[in-house]
Amino acid sequence: MRTAALILATTALLNADITINDIDKLVNDIKQERIGLKDKEILTAKDPFIYPNGRMGRILHTGQTKKRRYRFVLTAIVNDHVKINRRWYSLNSKINGYRVSRVGKDHVLLTRKNERIRVFLKRSKSKKIKLFVK
């Protein structure tokens, strides 16, 4: 196996007709400054990517800050305690800057300044109640 690789490498080197002048020419071609697109042309260029949902889109920087979106999953309500995102919270406690302001039978009201989010219980597909007793 080694001899075959050695023979192949030797024949490749012997058949290569590259001289130092050819290498210098290639290096000089690489060194030359290439002219690219102007900034205005870049901004108006179409997006080259194809997206899986079929839409072609482009994200433009508008200078506005993105709003954070939190995902709240309510899985249990016991009196004034609620289980949101696998953690237990009580009435008036804070979660990601929101305050648990009201606890209903099947929902929780989260408030922050002028924002209000009503989170409903996540319904399981199974309607059977399972109790585990130790």
Rank of each mutant, 00 (worst) to 15 (best):
R58W: 06
R34K: 15
T65V: 10
P48V: 06
L14W: 04
A9I: 13
L14V: 15
T44Y: 03
Q32P: 03
R58Q: 11
N21S: 12
K38P: 01
E41A: 05
L26K: 09
D24Q: 11
A9S: 14
K31G: 04
R68C: 01
I50K: 09
E33C: 01
A5E: 15
I23G: 00
H61V: 14
D17P: 00
N53S: 05
N53V: 07
T65N: 06
G36W: 08
H61T: 13
K40P: 01
T44F: 00
G54C: 06
L37K: 12
A12L: 12
I23D: 00
I23F: 01
N53M: 04
Q64G: 08
T44K: 04
Y51P: 00
A5P: 07
D39T: 12
F49Y: 12
I20K: 07
A16Q: 08
N21P: 02
R68E: 14
R68D: 14
I30M: 02
T10I: 09
L8N: 11
R55G: 02
A12M: 10
L6Q: 12
N15A: 13
I20P: 04
L60I: 15
R58H: 10
T10A: 13
P52E: 14
D47S: 14
E41F: 01
Q64M: 04
Y70V: 11
P48R: 02
K66Q: 09
L13G: 07
L43Q: 13
I7V: 11
G63E: 05
G63V: 08
T65P: 02
I7H: 03
T62G: 11
Y70L: 01
G54S: 05
I59M: 04
T44S: 10
L6E: 15
V27L: 03
G63Q: 03
T44W: 00
H61A: 10
K40Q: 09
I20E: 08
K38D: 13
R71D: 14
I50R: 04
K67A: 05
K25S: 11
I7D: 12
M56G: 10
L37G: 00
G57Y: 08
I50Q: 13
D24T: 11
K31V: 12
T11I: 13
Q32C: 02
I42W: 03
I42L: 12
G36A: 10
I35L: 07
N21Y: 04
P52D: 13
Y51C: 09
E33V: 15
I7A: 07
D17E: 11
D29M: 08
T10F: 03
E41M: 00
I50V: 15
I7N: 07
T11D: 13
A12H: 06
L43W: 07
K66M: 07
A16G: 06
K31H: 05
R69S: 08
D24V: 11
L8C: 07
E33G: 05
I18R: 00
G63D: 07
D22C: 01
I35D: 09
G57D: 09
I30P: 02
I20M: 03
V27Q: 03
N21D: 14
F49D: 12
L60N: 11
K25F: 05
K38H: 03
N21K: 06
R55D: 14
H61D: 15
T65K: 08
A12T: 15
L60P: 03
N15D: 12
